[in-house]
Design a protein around this nucleic acid. Structure first.
Length: 695
DNA sequence: GAGCACTGC
């Protein structure tokens, strides 16, 4: 037995050895092939100056347009210049996973190393690093999490915050945290900080870091001619349509990118393009319209990236996903009506309605730049030039528009007690800070002294979930239904589970019936998850590709979005690990869904709606002055059923109507029984009629 | 009986 084993291992050793040789040859060949391209990048000519700047200054701001090579080259320059002494790391943050993964792959190739060795990346569900990693790409959110367990970020000698102009909540919080870390580190282990931004306005970053040195790096961008309309069009969708046909009929070959605000507009314009095309002479019909938005199933998204058939012109109708998140090859023309949908947080109601608003100058510039990636291009702005000058210089940062409870919970866990005195690059409004603190206090994450509570607050900060979901898990472990709540929370955080094609409405509804629970959507989601469990268990013997294919087929059959369900399963396993480490009691309530619904009432007391005499619902907030009238969304299993009292998780606002989604029936007496005492006091003080009803 | 921009842990 032993000899067989040793033979095997010798064999595999030999095989690995020759594989390794082949592999390193291939890596080297790739590196050699990429070397000329690296040398041709604008940044290559200033390598020495840049390295000197970093030696001289603890904080450096680097401004440069895309295509200059700063994201891929600077970390390599610093590595070669010896910034990784004593095994320390160069960390580079990106605002998205896709960016972190792609850039690190590229850099590993350029260095001629296997990904995960000297060059690696860390994102939510993947850690491709090892003890030999020195250049580490990651999302800004990932580094923030790392700071909770290592507040001085002691493993890093340099941290580069890339794409800082995007100003996500994570970037803004991270900048403040890094500023504190830099101050607190001793002279011998100074942290070098580099902020990279595409915006023309480096001043805000420079001022924030005490007048830090800013340098500019040449980008690589072809010129884009900009055209404006004489008047502001009354209907920009029609203006877009006219412009795109003008380009199609009069301009030379090259694809067109149109920026619209959402799915509805995109589908509307797509239909119109198809209708108009039929009216054109046959030789002018070689135009194909392709939609692109994030909730579009991924196999349809790939259409936007594949070239059109020979002789055809492609027009991509996209949301602002095409501004930064993805780059589409072949674009020569951009049509920009100048609008985008953004959330505006209302601290009074705790809601974040989506509203279409004019974009900023920086955004308009970013959009036109999409036409000049490969050759000179043209951008048609569907407004007069004087309107352009009236636009805001840059887009309002997320931190001024979003619910801050999660960010504040993170800061508390990092030891920042007085949030109002935290050195933000731009301060959120006092009102939104106060509302978030109130919400966290109601959830039990903060005590009356507004300090992080132990263990509840600490546990909530550890879980990678919105605070309200973390709270639900803790509550569920007390009420013996954590298994069910974990599935619910994973499903709710993965995004919309069902998709309904316009042309197959009835079919989709019938398919969904199989999972429906008449008590509500939360229970229905649990059924979907468990059905997928069962399906996958029965096919555990299949190969991976086969497995994936069968899974997608199964999802399609029931009109389930396979990406969302896959994501829910990933979140589930990550959180499962987290709650186990915390020692929460992992029990199932079995068939006793009564108990689970009580737990929903005990967890989502900030999301309760009560039926009024006219059949509409009142959303009860902790500030009854801000109560809203809402309706159950037609996609909910409770639509048309009108139960007395419900909990919900989402509120969508459309022209004047407010719909609640993901609803489940509860007993209204449970709310008064199970809500936190301080909330009950507020409700009682305002003499809510339903409180007296149940007495 | 309607229809949610984009990210992230």
């Amino acid at each position: 037995m032993a000899s067989v084993r040793s033979n095997n291992s010798t064999e595999s050793l030999k095989r690995n050895f020759s594989d390794d040789n082949r592999e390193s040859d291939a890596l080297f060949a790739k590196k050699q092939k990429l070397a000329p391209h690296r040398k041709s990048l604008p940044i290559a000519t200033v390598e020495n100056q840049l390295v000197q700047e970093v030696w001289k200054h603890d904080t450096l701001i680097i401004v440069g347009e895309t295509g200059g090579g700063k994201t891929t080259q600077l970390p390599q320059f610093l590595y070669n210049a010896g910034f990784c002494g004593n095994g320390r790391l160069i960390g580079i943050t990106q605002p998205s996973c896709v960016a972190a993964v792609n850039v690190s792959k590229r850099v590993a190739e350029e260095c001629g190393v296997k990904l995960g060795e000297t060059v690696g990346y860390s994102i939510r569900f993947e850690n491709v690093t090892s003890s030999s990693t020195r250049i580490k790409y990651m999302t800004d959110g990932f580094l923030l999490r790392e700071a909770i367990s290592d507040p001085s970020l002691s493993r890093y000698s340099v941290i580069i915050v890339d794409e800082a102009h995007e100003r996500t909540v994570e970037t803004d919080v991270l900048l403040g945290v890094l500023k504190n870390v830099q101050r607190s580190r001793s002279e011998s282990v100074k942290l070098k900080l580099i902020i990279m931004s595409a915006s023309l306005d480096a001043r805000i970053f420079s001022e924030y870091f005490g007048g830090a040195r800013a340098v500019h790096i040449q980008g690589r961008q072809f010129p884009v001619d900009k055209f404006y309309t004489y008047h502001l069009p009354k209907a920009y969708l029609h203006a877009s349509l006219i412009t795109l046909f003008q380009i199609h009929l009069e301009e030379e070959a090259g694809d067109i990118l149109v920026f619209l605000t959402g799915k509805e507009e995109i589908e509307f314009v797509e239909r119109l393009v198809k209708e108009k095309l039929k009216q054109l002479p046959e030789n002018s019909q070689k135009l194909v319209a392709v939609p692109l938005f994030s909730s579009l199933p991924s196999e349809q998204q790939t259409q936007a990236f594949t070239p059109a058939c020979p002789g055809f012109r492609k027009v991509i109708l996209a949301t602002k996903i095409a501004e930064t998140s993805v780059t589409i090859p072949g674009i020569k023309y951009v049509i920009d009506p100048g609008f985008a949908k953004v959330h505006f947080y209302n601290p009074n109601t705790g809601l974040e309605p989506l509203i279409a608003v004019p974009i900023s100058k920086a955004q308009a510039l970013q959009r036109s730049g999409r036409a000049g990636r490969e050759r000179p291009g043209k951008c048609f702005r569907l407004y007069p030039e004087n309107e352009f000058w009236k636009l805001e210089d840059s887009t309002k940062p997320d931190i001024k528009r979003c619910d801050l409870s999660n960010a504040i919970l993170q800061l508390k866990a990092l030891g920042v007690h007085d949030i109002t005195r935290f050195d933000f690059i731009e301060k959120p409004t006092g009102e939104s800070i106060i509302k978030s603190l109130e919400q966290l206090t109601l959830l039990g994450a903060l005590g009356d002294d507004r300090k992080l509570s132990d263990p509840v607050g600490r546990q909530m900060a550890r879980l990678p979930l919105p605070p309200i979901y973390s709270k639900a898990l803790i509550k569920a472990s007390e009420l013996n239904c954590l298994e069910e709540m974990l599935i619910t929370v994973a499903m709710l955080s993965a995004g919309s589970m069902f998709f309904t094609p316009r042309e197959k409405l009835d079919e989709a509804r019938t398919a969904r019936k199989r999972f429906e629970n008449p008590e509500g959507d939360h229970l229905t989601l649990i059924n979907v998850y468990r059905a997928s469990d069962q399906f996958l268990e029965n096919r555990s013997g299949l190969s991976r590709e086969n497995h994936e294919e069968k899974f997608q087929k199964w999802c399609k059959k029931y009109f389930i979005d396979s990406c969302s369900l896959r994501r829910a399963r990933e979140i589930h396993s990550q959180i499962h690990e987290g709650v186990e480490q915390m020692g929460l009691s992992f029990a199932s309530c079995g068939d006793n869904m009564f108990q689970f619904r009580r737990c929903l009432a005990a967890s989502f007391f900030l999301k309760v709606a009560l039926k009024q005499s006219d059949g509409q619902y009142r959303f009860l907030t902790y500030d009854p002055a801000n109560e809203l009238v809402v309706q159950i969304h037609p996609s909910s299993v409770l639509f048309g059923k009108k139960p007395e009292c419900i909990v919900f998780n989402e509120l969508v606002e459309t022209n004047d109507q407010k719909f609640i989604c993901n609803t489940t029936r509860i007993d209204y007496s449970w709310s008064t029984e199970l809500a936190p005492p301080r909330l009950k006091k507020v409700w009682e003080r305002h003499k809510l009629p339903w409180i007296s009803n149940c007495r």
